[in-house]
């Protein structure tokens, strides 16, 4: 059992508040992705869990044991680094066996575990090579194998795929997911790539300015973003926003149209809708097409609604030209509302 609990963790670098008020529980064998733009504190949080960085305040618990005062090696973790950190002076075999050697395991046990993980990562034919003779993808595999060979309770990954080319990233992503699910370890994975996050995670923690804005399943984060930041960050293209003014008793005026919304006394709300939840209809939001991008599977139309830029993903059979006037109807159950003052979602 390796449940990870992060309690009230905060981190300051000098006067800069890198993390504040972090509370997060990661369940045993869960795949948790920390997602955010660069500088949001996700790597710092991972390093605090690893023990490479000390939290200014707060506690880290792994498997029911408080670990924030322990050295990294005593935390039952293994880590995959962004630049792989595959030791150049050691062969692939010795790289994978590095942690096992440090634990002074007998030779035959080291050999057994190195060969098993190497086979798992399909690098068993590279064991005698040095890292200078490997491609980026192979180095990545060595780094993952080195972590898996430790048979850790928790595996920490810091943007492990960001240095690979697009095709390799896709391949490794699927492979990582399979291997990790099989190994039954708890995994924490840092990335700024939302597609990676969506495809890998059991749960995603979206981070922004040193805080966790939302921690939920990928589909929940996508469908029901807890804050405007999440709505704008997740999804490509991101959610559209328009200002709504009250039109009495759960009715709101958006771009001149009256839409059903929450029964609130607010003087203003943000109306939000995903581009793929819009469709051409008889009545809806009046839009003027500005840019039309045929993407094969569908048509991405950037238009102007009520003076704001607004994107719609439409059926690729439609013929739309820049300058065309469209009427876009939002799918009613997909409309989300945010409070412009707190930027949080309102039901």
């Amino acid at each position: 059992m390796a449940e990870i609990q992060i309690k009230n963790v905060a981190k300051k670098f000098g006067a800069y508040q890198a993390l504040s008020d972090i509370n997060l529980t990661i369940h045993d064998q869960e795949f948790m992705v920390l997602l955010g733009a660069s500088g949001c504190g996700k790597t710092t949080l991972l390093r605090i869990i690893a023990g490479l960085e000390t939290a200014t305040t707060g506690e880290v618990w792994i498997g029911g044991k408080r670990v924030d005062h322990l050295a990294p090696k005593d935390r039952g973790i293994a880590m995959v680094f962004q630049n792989y950190a595959v030791f150049p002076h050691l062969t692939v075999f010795e790289n994978i066996g590095f942690g096992l050697r440090m634990q002074k395991l007998p030779n035959d046990e080291v050999k057994r575990r190195v060969e098993r993980t190497a086979t798992l990562m399909h690098i068993e034919q590279l064991l005698k090579r040095y890292s200078g003779e490997l491609s980026g993808g192979q180095r990545q595999r060595v780094a993952v194998a080195r972590a898996l060979a430790m048979e850790p309770d928790v595996i920490l990954m810091d943007e492990p795929l960001s240095n690979l080319d697009a095709l390799l990233r896709l391949e490794m992503r699927a492979e990582l997911k399979g291997v990790l699910a099989e190994s039954k370890t708890t995994a924490i994975y840092v990335t700024h790539d939302q597609v990676e996050a969506m495809s890998l995670a059991d749960r995603i923690s979206v981070m922004h300015k040193g805080k966790i804005v939302q921690a939920a399943s990928p589909i929940e984060v996508y469908r029901n973003p807890a804050a405007e930041f999440v709505a704008g960050f997740i999804g490509n293209p991101p959610m559209n926003f328009l200002t709504a003014t009250p039109a009495g008793d759960g009715k709101w005026t958006v771009a001149g149209q009256v839409v059903d919304g929450p029964r609130l006394g607010a003087s203003q709300l943000q109306f939000a809708i995903r581009p793929e939840d819009l469709g051409p209809a008889e009545s809806g939001l009046p839009a003027t097409a500005k840019v039309v991008e045929p993407l094969g599977a569908h048509l991405l139309v950037t238009c102007e609604v009520d003076g704001h830029s607004f994107r719609a993903v439409l059926d690729s059979d439609l013929t739309v030209k820049p300058g065309d006037r469209l009427t876009l109807a939002p799918q009613a159950d997909r409309i989300r509302w945010f409070d412009p003052e707190t930027t949080l979602a309102v039901a």
Partner: peptide, 25 residues
């Protein structure tokens, strides 16, 4: 690179071992 030392630390190398197994080679 600093990452080699961090990796060695995570994988259980003491400061002396890090000097012997990372710095010297």
């Amino acid at each position: 690179p600093k990452e080699y030392y961090e990796a060695a630390e995570v994988f259980g190398a003491s400061p002396w071992k890090r000097f012997l197994r990372i710095t010297l080679p």
